[in-house]
Amino acid sequence: MLSQINHSPILKILINLIALSFLFISIAGSIAVGAVDIDITTVWQALVSFDPSINAHQIIQELRLPRAIAAALVGAFLAVSGAIMQGMTRNPLASPSIMGVTDGAAFALVITLAFFPTVSSFGSVASGFIGAGIATTLVFMIGTFSKGGLTPVKLALGGVAIGTMLSSMSSMIALHFQLEKELGFWLAGGLSGTNWNSVIILIASGVIGLALAIGISKSITVLSLGEDIAVGLGQNNQRIKIIAILSVLILTGAAVSIAGAVGFVGLIVPHITRFIMGTDYRWIVPSSAIFGSLLLVLSDIMARMVNAPYETPVGAITSLIGVPFFLYLARGSGGGK
């Protein structure tokens, strides 16, 4: 784990405020950049005095704004899930992306599309939720019930195994029902398909999921010191863990069913946040949310600029940023034994 610096609370608040203002600047940038470049003053006008007769205002209101907000929310959700997972399992490699979550959501989605083709967009998001939940639970169970317990390597390999199996089954179903295109589109989808409906779904899940996460953040701090210490301090670990898993499921489920495969945000951000904010999860959880939003909004801008006018999947961008970091962790504490 990275060494920690103990900053004073005022400095921590200041860092968070600076990050927050960067977030707003990058959201504005995200709205301005795209196939049609729109200058910042028009962006501002579209927000404060919307005029439906102006084309640029329409683009901003219907496409760019929901997309930027969705990117910020998805980034926040993934980062908070990662922070909670890492704190709860005391495992530096725990994060949604290496645990087969995306493959689980894709699997459920393909089944839904194959057998209930008339399903609404809300129904397909709900099925993504369930699939993500099943995959996470399976990987957790493999880790927990195996000899030697939930080690980093168990978690990673369990994720690989469950992920490969689920994605193989989805490909098979997709091939048979001729849904390859839908599946591929969703998997590489990123944030290009987001609209106000997705934002509403994200906000609804975020209110519950983030509230749960912040509510247990103090207990997660205690838990991250070790289960024995937590029990010694009179904490009901079982209840805390159930609430933690529930919030992780809600947050990753929503993020994955909206944005598809966005890897490594949940892995990197909590580490960076811990490095800046120290070990107290009451600070880590909200700061992770801000840093995660910032990272994904910036990645989404990059995804649109790297190969313009075509979009690069945002998941590929976050992977390329995240992999060196993962390797650094794997070299250090993850494989230290």
Partner: peptide, 8 residues
Amino acid sequence: RLILVGIG
């Protein structure tokens, strides 16, 4: 370490 690096 080899396996974790491999996954990455």
